[in-house]
């Protein structure tokens, strides 16, 4: 069944040009499920990178503007769109020229998946 989930994530990944990877992790950056293309930067899919968003979103929520939901970073070659979907973190790694709006829209497509995975984290 996990294979079907990964197939679905791969399918979604293919709908946005330049999207290289989708990863779902817990708050500490431990990967629960991920799919990545050949162009995906390996460093961006390791826990040391993924865990930073968990800390940042928590700290950014203390700015007096409510809970932080998403952080988007642009690098020379890549962009990362990271979504705080408590208790999960959702990470998209894409080409810097990829359509950010389309990637953000994928969060809606992933809602059912994220709800199912949330239960897994809740069991721990």
């Amino acid at each position: 069944m996990t294979e079907e989930l990964k197939a679905y994530l791969n399918k979604l990944m293919g709908t946005v040009e330049g999207l290289h990877a989708i990863a779902v992790t817990d708050r500490d950056g431990v990967v629960i499920v991920k799919v990545a293309g050949q162009m995906a930067p390996d460093t961006a899919l390791r826990p040391p990178f993924l865990s930073v968003f968990g800390v940042m979103t928590e700290q950014a929520g203390k700015m007096g503007m409510g809970t932080n939901k998403r952080i988007i970073n642009f690098y020379d070659r890549y962009q990362t769109i990271q979504v705080n979907y408590h208790p999960l973190l959702l990470h998209f790694i894409a080409d810097t020229n990829a359509n950010t709006g389309l990637i953000l829209e994928l969060e809606n497509e992933l809602e059912d998946v994220l709800k199912d995975i949330s239960k897994v984290v809740g069991m721990m």
């Binding site: 069944m1 996990t2 079907e4 989930l5 679905y8 979604l12 709908t15 817990d26 500490d28 431990v30 990967v31 629960i32 499920v33 826990p47 809606n108 497509e109 809602e111 059912d112 998946v113 199912d116 995975i117 239960k119 897994v120 984290v121 069991m123 721990m124």
Partner: peptide, 26 residues
């Protein structure tokens, strides 16, 4: 971290195996 990742993987398999759900884009 490795232990937790393995645990997640097992639990995810368990949680999803009981389902006959097919994920489709909304």
């Amino acid at each position: 971290m490795q232990d937790r990742a393995t645990q997640y993987s097992n639990r995810l398999n368990m949680a999803l195996s009981g389902k006959s759900r097919v994920y489709r884009p909304n």
